[in-house]
Design a protein around this nucleic acid. Structure first.
Lengths: 353, 353
DNA sequence: CTGTTAGCGCTTTCAA
DNA sequence: TTGAAAGCGCTAACAG
């Protein structure tokens, strides 16, 4: 325990910082009677060393319980084998699906994922980008295509591939895996109009940094203007609070109070729509006869509600997987054929309309 | 562009690996006309350098667009400022809440979170622990208390704090933030019996590595044996497939076919219970008159279903936040008062029983 | 197939 | 308050 028991004349002054010296590659090399270089090679590509040497090294690794230090590896090789992922919030299962898809593809290739969430604020996003850039990830994955100038600059200067997602833009920072939220919403409106609904109201939670929600509203307004020129569009929104079903209930109540003539409510998310749909059942409002309801996202619940919820299905997991594949190709030095991937969307017409 | 234009006699042979040399602390130091030491100090503790020096350094940082390299920092200081988090799956919103809580507390303190998921297999968990250990995180967060011997060994030998969670054990590896799944399930059974139900059936998805689901089944069996000694407990399970409402629908169908006498179905998760409850509405099965249904987790949907779903509420986000606080204290060298935190659970009796 | 050398970019230690 | 030297644990480059 005593820190002083080192003896009188420690030749090369010990500059150790860690108390319990960890096993290093040098220890393995010594145990296997090879150089550290050979150990390094054996770990990265077992076929690059002789079979007997390899066996000795593997034995040494086991016996010394060696765990490679990636920080040192990273510093020496300039490859961190990590990918930074930036999402608005983890608690929305639909982004979780995307992250799951991302990690499902990246982990088997040896990449680890750093995760950060912005809570839908661009300021937090910028801080996160800066902080994550300091980890020198080999790639970035980020939800959204609108960022602060500073964040965009940092992302561009990292020199590593960047995938933006879940939106669409003609000029991505680098790579893009997304779809047009506006176009999807237009399709919802077209569908409602085709089914005979005429008094549509948009209801959504639009946080300051949530450009996907804004695009959906924009799509609604565009389509509404196209179908009902001159008619003032009905819009009910909240700008804060957790994205939970209760918010949908509250939005429904505001729609019924402020726009009682509404015959169809276009929600910006399945979460909100589900809350509203269930509330309708409790209130005795018949869906879709008295009121049609649409959602966005095709969450698990949408197909199970009674009636089923008409919504837009997004290939959430696919976005993550496709993004991972693009990143992998780039991180391995290959070129990608298409820098922009449109995963599209699909209108699922169910009983609620 | 030419790689050859270096001239004939490059004195000290360049051993650069990165093509575009990134801005380093030395560049900042040069621009600010101080040593790298001073820059380093200024970045870590601005008050440790003179105000004029600080101003020059801050200016230099801005002008050079310097982004600190944490890998080098990590290697030199032996602190990575990261925490590794291991969860069964990201796509289950209830774990996402926990991760959100964890990051909400850790990010402001400068820690970043590495995320990995095991898909409920202990083999993948072990691989993940090994891999994440190589990143030398300053702390581990892991869902569950049952691990392979090897994974346990690695976690113990890292020398950093480890928080296990979402279960209960008298002998955690290090720290514990959890609750007893079995006790929670017993309370569900007690509640049903008190309400007059006598023919209970357990229905759940029990994946091989999901010890929390197993504990819930165990709790059911214990309570069932206590209330109905000698009566064979009814249990319907699946062992694979995605945890979605459809699985709940299928379990419900099996319960109705194999155990038609059932008057209450005890589901191991709200997801399953919700699917079943909605299916009951579609089938015309009255809940709770014909069949009572209970869930587990108190997902957002539970309170909005009609009737409301009786379930066990878990402080999912709190688990993450509490774990983060324990880790922080330990990572900052302080002792923690209580190594084991029981966050408990709460039975929420709603209309479905 | 294997070893030697230098260095990745930062922080610790020690000295001024 | 600031600086000089050393080294964290690994890998690239080169040589054999």
């Amino acid at each position: 325990m005593s820190e002083n028991g080192r003896g009188p004349a420690p030749r090369a002054v010990s500059r150790r910082r860690s108390a319990t010296r960890a096993v290093t590659m040098a220890d393995v090399a010594q145990a296997a009677e090879v150089s550290t270089q050979t150990v390094s090679r054996a770990l990265r590509d077992p076929r690059s060393v002789g079979p007997e040497t390899l066996a000795r090294i593997e034995k040494a690794v086991r016996e010394t319980r060696y765990v490679q230090n990636y920080a040192a590896s990273h510093l020496a090789s300039n490859r961190s084998m990590t990918v930074a992922a930036i999402i608005p919030t983890i608690s929305t299962s639909i982004f979780a699906e995307t992250i799951q898809g991302l990690t499902d593809v990246l982990l088997p290739e040896g990449y680890q994922v750093f995760l950060g969430h912005t809570d839908y604020t661009t300021a937090r996003e910028e801080a996160l980008v800066r902080s994550l850039a300091g980890r020198r990830p080999d790639g970035f994955f980020i939800i959204g295509t609108k960022h602060t100038q500073e964040a965009t600059d940092i992302l561009k200067r990292t020199g590593v591939p960047v995938v933006e997602s879940w939106s669409w833009t003609p000029r991505p920072i680098d790579l893009l895996v997304g779809f047009s939220n506006a176009a999807a919403m237009m399709e919802v409106v077209d569908h409602l109009v085709a089914r005979g609904y005429r008094r549509l109201t948009f209801a959504g939670m639009i946080k300051p940094g949530d450009h996907r929600a804004k695009d959906r509203l924009k799509g609604f307004l565009d389509a509404h203007g196209r179908h009902f020129p001159g008619v003032e569009p009905r819009v009910v929104t909240t700008t804060s609070g957790p994205m939970v079903m209760e918010a949908g209930v509250e939005l429904l109540e505001r729609v019924r109070r402020d726009h009682p003539e509404t015959d169809a409510v276009v929600f910006a998310s399945d979460v909100l729509a589900s809350g509203a749909l269930l509330k309708c059942a409790a209130l005795g409002v018949r869906v879709p006869q008295d009121l049609a309801i649409t959602g966005f996202g095709n969450y698990d619940i949408a197909a199970h509600l009674v009636p089923g919820l008409t919504t837009i299905a997004i290939a959430s997991r696919t976005i993550g997987m496709e993004a991972a594949r693009l990143l992998l190709r780039r991180m391995q030095g290959e070129e990608v054929a298409a820098r922009m991937v449109d995963v599209g969307f699909q209108l699922l017409a169910r009983g609620s309309t």
